[in-house]
């Protein structure tokens, strides 16, 4: 996805988030049967996504058991071999089993996605809550910072950082997380600005409930849908970005198997050995697809406007 891997917040991300409070399709009056059918279909997709995602996670988790070969088992006598009974997906440029790499690759790719999304959610909640709850100069300063961060062409910056500082799995997680929290922060801030004026928040403040408690117990539960949806989307975004950076040769170090690194390694051979490029790319696509289905399902389930 052109824009999303490249930018701080993908357009679909924004479209989905924008659609959060009032989902545009949701307002359309339609018959109860139609509505039910639609929700069932969406739920089925979400369920499918969940099953696929779980399967991928389990496969990654049990890679040492499932994989037919060792993670970095080099076989110089069998370089870029075509698929065979011994190597179902063939071997890569070092004679390593492609299926094995695919399984191990899932570990890092999925971990990068989950960790970066959690980090981004953390920062987004923190900044958004602080700005929205306290308002005033804190709000002004934080929002100007958000503006600056949003104005950065993120992929350019990430490439510069990784090419110069070298990279590690931790570094990729850290920086992908730190460049994708801004839209969530904006949404939470907006919601908080109006929520804190509401009676229950005013009342809590009046009886002296500490700020932290008001934020955690009274305000945050109201924006949980935004957080969950944004986090699933950010997970997809982080996985695609990791792949993009690794594909360009500046992501996760090359000896660590990730789907992006496998694509990078396949590039010199993909015209003669297409399966080396197709397998990791397709797996990544399926994983992201599953995450997006789950995200949509969660949005439907959590959306307070659609009871």
């Amino acid at each position: 996805m052109t824009v999303s891997t490249a930018s701080g917040a993908p357009p679909a991300d924004r479209a989905a988030l924008a659609g959060l409070a009032p989902d545009l399709t949701a307002r359309k009056p339609r018959g109860p049967w139609r509505l039910a059918l639609e929700r069932l279909r969406r739920a089925r997709l979400a369920l499918l996504g969940l099953v696929v995602l779980l399967a991928l996670c389990l496969a990654a988790l049990f890679a040492p058991v499932l994989a037919p070969y060792g993670e970095n088992e080099i076989d110089l006598f069998n370089i870029t071999a075509l698929p065979s009974a011994e190597h179902v997906l063939g071997t890569d440029d070092l004679g390593r089993d492609e299926l094995t790499r695919l399984l191990y690759g899932g570990r890092v790719s999925l971990m990068v996605g989950i960790a970066a999304a959690l980090l981004s959610a953390g920062v987004g909640i923190g900044v958004g809550a602080a700005a929205g709850y306290y308002g005033g100069w804190i709000d002004a300063a934080l929002m100007r910072f958000v503006d600056v961060m949003l104005a950065f062409p993120a992929i350019f910056l990430l490439l510069i950082l990784f090419s110069m500082r070298g990279s590690s799995v931790g570094g990729v997680i850290l920086f992908l997380g730190l460049f994708s929290w801004m839209w969530l922060a904006r949404i939470i801030r907006g919601e908080f600005l109006s929520l804190k004026q509401r009676d229950f928040a005013e009342a809590a403040r009046a009886v002296g409930v500490p700020d932290g408690r008001i934020i955690l117990r009274h305000l945050l539960p109201n924006v949980i849908a935004a957080i969950v949806v944004s986090t699933t989307l950010n997970m997809a975004y982080a996985m695609l970005s990791e792949a993009a950076l690794s594909f360009l040769g500046f992501g996760v170090p090359p000896d660590v198997p990730t789907w992006g690194n496998m694509l990078n390694a396949a590039r010199p051979y993909y015209t003669v050995q297409p399966q080396l490029a197709i397998a990791p790319g397709l797996t990544l696509t399926v994983a992201v697809l599953a995450i997006n289905f789950v995200g949509d399902g969660l949005r439907d389930a959590l959306d307070p406007h659609r009871s």
Binding site: M1, L263, R267, T285, V286, V288, N292
Partner: peptide, 12 residues
């Protein structure tokens, strides 16, 4: 379209 890595789509 939203789930595919753009460079991979390009390669294909």
């Amino acid at each position: 379209g939203l789930a595919m890595p753009v460079f991979w789509f390009g390669l294909m």
